[in-house]
Amino acid sequence: MSARRPQPGGPFAGQSRPGRIALYAGLFVLGALVGVAGSLAQGGLFPGGLLLALLATAGLFYGGLYVTGTQLGVAAPAAGWLVAAVLLSIPRPEGDAVFAAGLGPLVYLLGGMVVAVMCATMSRLPQPGTKSGRLGK
Score class of each variant (00 low, 15 high):
Ser2Leu: 12
Ser2Met: 11
Ala3Val: 13
Ala3His: 10
Ala3Glu: 12
Arg4Met: 15
Arg4Glu: 12
Arg5Leu: 05
Pro6Phe: 05
Pro6Lys: 00
Gln7Lys: 14
Gln7Asn: 13
Pro8Thr: 15
Pro8Met: 07
Gly9Cys: 13
Gly9Phe: 12
Pro11Trp: 08
Pro11Asn: 03
Ala13His: 13
Gly14Lys: 01
Gln15Asp: 11
Ser16Trp: 07
Pro18Lys: 04
Ile21Leu: 09
Leu23Trp: 04
Leu23Gly: 03
Tyr24Leu: 13
Ala25Gln: 00
Gly26Asn: 06
Val29Phe: 07
Ala32Met: 03
Ala32Asp: 00
Ala32Phe: 09
Ala32Thr: 01
Leu33Asp: 03
Leu33Gly: 12
Ala37Glu: 04
Ala37Lys: 03
Gly38Pro: 01
Gly38Ala: 09
Ser39Phe: 03
Ser39Arg: 05
Ser39Pro: 05
Leu40Gly: 07
Leu40His: 13
Gln42His: 15
Gly43Thr: 13
Gly44Trp: 07
Phe46Val: 12
Gly48Glu: 14
Leu50Cys: 05
Ala53Ser: 07
Ala53Val: 02
Ala53Lys: 01
Ala53Pro: 04
Leu54Met: 03
Ala56Asn: 07
Leu60Asn: 01
Phe61Arg: 02
Phe61Val: 07
Tyr62Arg: 12
Gly63Pro: 03
Leu65Glu: 15
Tyr66Gly: 08
Tyr66Ser: 08
Tyr66Glu: 12
Tyr66His: 13
Thr68Ser: 13
Gly69Ala: 07
Thr70Glu: 12
Gln71Lys: 11
Val74Thr: 07
Val74Glu: 07
Ala75Val: 15
Ala76Ile: 02
Ala76Tyr: 02
Pro77Cys: 04
Pro77Thr: 03
Ala79Tyr: 03
Gly80Gln: 01
Leu82Ile: 11
Leu82Asn: 00
Val83Trp: 00
Val83Thr: 05
Ala84Pro: 04
Ala84Met: 02
Ala85Thr: 11
Val86Lys: 10
Val86Met: 15
Leu87Trp: 08
Leu87His: 09
Leu88His: 05
Ser89Phe: 11
Ser89Trp: 08
Ser89His: 06
Ile90Asp: 04
Pro91Ile: 02
Glu94Ala: 10
Asp96Ile: 09
Ala97Asn: 05
Ala97Tyr: 07
Val98Glu: 00
Val98Ala: 10
Ala101Val: 14
Gly102Met: 10
Leu103Tyr: 05
Gly104Cys: 10
Pro105Asn: 14
Pro105Arg: 09
Pro105Lys: 09
Leu106Val: 09
Val107Thr: 06
Leu109Gln: 10
Leu110Asn: 14
Leu110Trp: 15
Gly111Val: 02
Gly111Pro: 06
Gly112Asp: 09
Val114Ser: 13
Val115Asn: 03
Ala116Asp: 01
Ala116Arg: 00
Val117His: 12
Met118Gln: 11
Met118Ala: 09
Cys119Pro: 14
Cys119Ala: 14
Ala120Met: 04
Arg124Met: 10
Leu125Gly: 15
Gln127His: 12
Gly129Asn: 08
Gly129Arg: 15
Thr130His: 15
Thr130Lys: 12
Lys131Pro: 07
Lys131Met: 09
Lys131Phe: 15
Ser132His: 06
Ser132Asp: 09
Gly133His: 08
Gly133Cys: 06
Arg134Gly: 06
Arg134Val: 13
Leu135Cys: 11
Leu135His: 15
Gly136Ser: 14
Gly136Val: 11
Gly136Ile: 14
Gly136Cys: 09
Gly136Glu: 12
